[in-house]
Simulated scan of single mutants.
Amino acid sequence: MLDYTKSFSNVIPVNSYVSYEGDKTIDKILQTTGIPKDFELLSIDIDGDDYYVWKSIEQYQPKLVIIEHNPTLPPDVEFVDVPRRSGKAGFGSSVKAFMKLANQKGYELICCTLANSFFVHKSLVPHLDICQKPLSEIFSYDYVRYVLYSYSGKAFLFPGKAPYGNLNTIESTLRQSNVLSNPPENSLQVVLIPCEQLDSLMAEDKLFKEYLTARGLKEDYDLWLQNRQ
């Protein structure tokens, strides 16, 4: 990046870790650049702490903010992920939560793509000459999934494809076992096991039993095995 931009006198490349606290906040980093307080565009896409990084910005008001939201959370769900200090990807926050934060900062939502929300400072919205629509109409539902139940109690994922990753291998199924520290309110974390995997899981019976036992699900395992027989 340094080599590519060195011929542009108006470009100031900065290679830095970004945080929502300490000496690596956006405010602290931008103070070293001389950038205007109302610069044109801020894009935040860091898989987890996006909400907190934007919230931490107090000295700058970019005209346009593009920020990543979790597209699996429907537009009526207000959810803010817990801060991540380990460097690992988090759950992400919902677009509704970002809208509330944006309103506090003086911004309005103008559009959404699959996983990004676009917020413009309220002072500039009248100049856009656009008809603002409710969130339910501009939100992309492509990654929203529903768990449906038949009258017999069988559960189905609809649409029947995982929005992230895949459900085609035992390994990918078991990787879902990472427990969230703060799942969305009134939600229940589940591990999805496609029907076509059941025979494979039976073949790897020891692995499956150890997996369930380690998570305190021994009774559920015994009941499942009894029903399979």
Score class of each variant (00 low, 15 high):
Lys154Asn: 10
Pro184Ile: 04
Pro159Ser: 02
Thr173Ser: 10
Arg175Pro: 00
Leu157Val: 14
Ile170Val: 13
Tyr146Cys: 08
Phe158Gly: 07
Val179Leu: 12
Pro184Phe: 00
Ser136Thr: 13
Ile138Cys: 11
Gly153Ser: 02
Ser187Lys: 04
Arg175Glu: 10
Pro184Ser: 01
Phe158Cys: 10
Tyr146His: 13
Tyr164Val: 08
Glu185Asn: 05
Ser136His: 11
Asn166Glu: 15
Pro159Lys: 05
Arg145Glu: 01
Asp142Trp: 03
Arg175Leu: 09
Pro159His: 07
Asn168Gly: 14
Pro134Lys: 02
Arg145Gln: 00
Asn182Ile: 06
Lys133Ile: 05
Tyr164Asn: 08
Ala155Ser: 13
Phe156Tyr: 14
Gln176Tyr: 00
Phe156Lys: 10
Lys161Asn: 14
Pro184Thr: 02
Pro184Cys: 01
Phe139Glu: 08
Lys154Arg: 15
Ser150Lys: 10
Asn178Asp: 10
Pro159Ile: 09
Ser187Arg: 02
Phe158Ile: 15
Ile170Phe: 13
Ser187Glu: 02
Ser136Asp: 11
Ser136Tyr: 02
Arg175Asn: 11
Glu185Thr: 05
Tyr151Phe: 10
Pro159Thr: 14
Pro183Tyr: 08
Tyr151Asn: 15
Pro163Val: 00
Phe158Asp: 12
Tyr151Cys: 10
Tyr149Asp: 03
Asp142Phe: 04
Lys133Pro: 06
Leu180Pro: 01
Pro134Asn: 04
Ser150Gln: 11
Asn178Cys: 08
Ile170Pro: 03
Leu180Val: 04
